[in-house]
Amino acid sequence: MDILEVKDLMVFYENAIAINNVSIKCETGKVTGIFGSNSAGKSTLMYAISGIMMDMKRKEEMKGGERITVVGEMRLNGEDIMDIKPNDRARKGVVLCPERRRIFPESSVLENLKIGGYLASRSQAQETLKYVFTLFPALKDMKGKEGGFLSGGEQQMLAIGRALMAQPKLLLLDEPLLGLSPAMETRLAQAIKKINEQIGITILVAEQYARPILPVIDYGYVLENGGKVLEGTAQELIDNPDVKEAYFGV
């Protein structure tokens, strides 16, 4: 059973193609990876799936800026979500933890998490808050600290925790390891695995550098210049000689 099915998706910025005929699937309860270098289209794909692209499109139209076109099919548990607004997609369980984290800088750690719990019921929020603090004990010790003053790794933990508070069914992680130390990379990769195993959330994770993420994914896709060039299980990707050199730094 696939929670998410993207079919023949194309995204254009003006006449430049950003996503070229990409079809991907996320199997329910699994971790799926998307790999690719800068400008391969990872973030664009994430924005398209989460619906943020609709908001960007609207804003661009308002100020007469870039024309954004999205065509294709996107289904969440079989339901067409192409025309659903981003906040309603979040309500349906598609929650994006964006590139560069976008922590609320003036709110404390606890408040960031509370704002994240907007869609959660009181008991869900309490339960998830407890879970986030067991997953990332470091956050508990800095509950009162302002989000803007956290380090990169701390911010990433907070961003994932905040996304969990929104009760996702499909969690989209866009470059969660960007700019982190190797130790923090491993810790976060482990946390991603834990979230998937312990509370059964389906995860789609996009990364530039595949190595730390590869051990935790079940299936992966490789994007290049907006198009899908390869897909397979983690093992198949590792074994592919072209991929090895280009993306896994082996």
Partner: peptide, 22 residues
């Protein structure tokens, strides 16, 4: 909850959208 969501929107509209705030 409503007040907190407004502060979320005030600080980063797009991040708030991702969390389901309209």
């Amino acid at each position: 909850r409503l007040g907190l969501s407004l502060r979320g929107i005030a600080q980063d509209e797009r991040a708030a959208l991702m969390l389901g705030i309209d």
